[in-house]
Design a protein around this nucleic acid. Sequence first.
DNA 1: GGTTAAATGGAGTATCGACTCCGAATATAC
DNA 2: GTATATTCGGAGTCGATACTCCATTTAACC
Lengths: 182, 182
Amino acid sequence: MRADARDNRARIMAAANEVFGRSPSASTDDVARLAGVGIATVFRHFPTKVELLEAVLTLRLERIREDALAAADSTDPGTAFYRFFTAVVADSASKLAIAEALTTAGAAIGEDARKAGRGMREAIEGLLLAAQRAGAVRADAQMAEVYALLVGASRGATATNLQPEVRDRMLALIYDGLKPRS
Amino acid sequence: MRADARDNRARIMAAANEVFGRSPSASTDDVARLAGVGIATVFRHFPTKVELLEAVLTLRLERIREDALAAADSTDPGTAFYRFFTAVVADSASKLAIAEALTTAGAAIGEDARKAGRGMREAIEGLLLAAQRAGAVRADAQMAEVYALLVGASRGATATNLQPEVRDRMLALIYDGLKPRS
DNA sequence: GGTTAAATGGAGTATCGACTCCGAATATAC
DNA sequence: GTATATTCGGAGTCGATACTCCATTTAACC
């Protein structure tokens, strides 16, 4: 692969990341313009718009997975769990926009993104278990509902354009529900 | 206004309610086809697609408002609060889809829908205050974060296509956070 | 520096969806 | 039953956007 091709591919990914983060209904032209390349170049690297969206989404999911793995490995998984939860909610806006664009596009999510999603879920589950062993999260909370809470808090925070203080108070309520009964 | 015109208007509203509930990106043709009228008829009653979406959204917001008012007036506002919360989350899928379609359409939400939203929020706040007076919800929870929780739980439930049992366990966690400290 | 295969860019195509026009149908008043 | 004003329906317009074609440019190897 030629050097300029690799360069352009990276620039396109970065531009798509930003553009689709801002507005899930953005056009491929927007991506090309921000990346500083012609539209044909975008389509050569990603033959279809859905594939481009998936590539961006996959990247983001993998990044969250790494964060979860690091948190689970930390010396204080209990604290790390809540910190991780807060961080995901705080900057979830763009991730959600992309996932939304994909589902709105009607396309079933492709294999790569699905695999990345599974990996992320597994990492988060590992973090949850570690936090439960550390006694920071009630033992009867299962992965499914904790994950639903995470997604819900994220979507709620971005959908309503929440003030940071309100978001923190909302998280405090959630955390009170997650902590072991005293 | 002629009788057939009134009829068709109602049929269009009902069809739009269902179609946009299923898929926020549905086309006006879809609405017309389900309503059994020509596309021009839809546009005569609602000069623009956004106005049609707003009409449907407004209707739904007003319905939620009435539910909240009824709950606040009940003899046991504490129980009614949690029942109301659960009900909103359970059938929020279509409401959210419509609100999403509106914001995705880039259109700032119009005055009617905004007013309906304010009315709904006020009714929910009344219900929250009643539930707090009844001692069923912790007194330090403010409307803003409770509303954010409601929206988040709704979006989380619909976004992830939650199983009903998981959804109930998620709500149980939230409710544990909302109940007064013992 | 020259050669060549790869990569590029922008004009072009096809499709889809919001919205309009106007002749046909129909409800209401007499 | 007829007149007429209102409503209807679908074919047509216009703009936007995903995707393609091909002449031009450029990186990489000698």
